[in-house]
Amino acid sequence: MSNLLEIKGVSKSFGPVHVLDQVDLTVAPGEVVGLVGDNGAGKSTLMKIVTGMYSADAGTITLNGEDIFHHSPGERRRMGIEMIYQDLALARQQDVAANIFLGREPTRSVLGMRFVDRATMRRDAQAMIDRLGARLPAINRPVGTFSGGQQQSVAIARALTFNPKVVIMDEPTAALAVREVQGVLDLIRQLKSEGIGVILISHRLNDVLSVTDRIVVLHHGRAAANLTTAETSMAEVVSAIVGGVDMAEAAAHEARG
């Protein structure tokens, strides 16, 4: 399987602080990669380097074999790298269609003036929600009236309209009710089945173990482990996160959820 996104030897320092040191990470089409690590391990910095918000001091980043190291965030987005932030960046008083098409509303011309084509917007938004298999109470209601998981589906639907190749999700299940977590994990599996590469940043190791193919563990800015999910265990992941110490007790705690 050839890789979609390849990060090789990426390093980044803020002044004297080495945040990332020679990190490698790859994502293949239809692969879900978990990115875990303690607070301050460098997860966010690494993702900001992927989306182009920060530039790395050293290393290479390629998308479909093309070097994107010097591309701007906008160019990378057009090339298919989408990030869904933890706060979702939704306008909560606007409806689903308005949020999905925010900033690029389809228009139609009436008497030489351009008006927002609400029928098209609504139809396309509904089609995207259906494609995701997400369940929303109504498409024409303000998204602020939705639950956390439903809002997450709107944010994912919006990301999908950009026809992304790689979707980065930052803590998508962190603030959700237990029964909603499965719904969001199903959405991630849906992205995977469409051949989209997914990077999942999460502290909820149970979710990471249940939905990912591989898990990359960052520790003090280094890729401390690159584990195949099917062949690893909670104990191994937790041990890598805390730096190789045997943490059977902590792992047991995590496993209990």
């Binding site: 960046a89 939704l90 306008a91 949020n99």
Partner: peptide
């Protein structure tokens, strides 16, 4: 119009 929709969106969530 897009101008109007953007007006509401800015007031709703400037970051978004």
């Amino acid at each position: 119009t897009r101008f109007g929709r953007h007006t509401l969106a800015i007031g709703d969530n400037e970051n978004a």
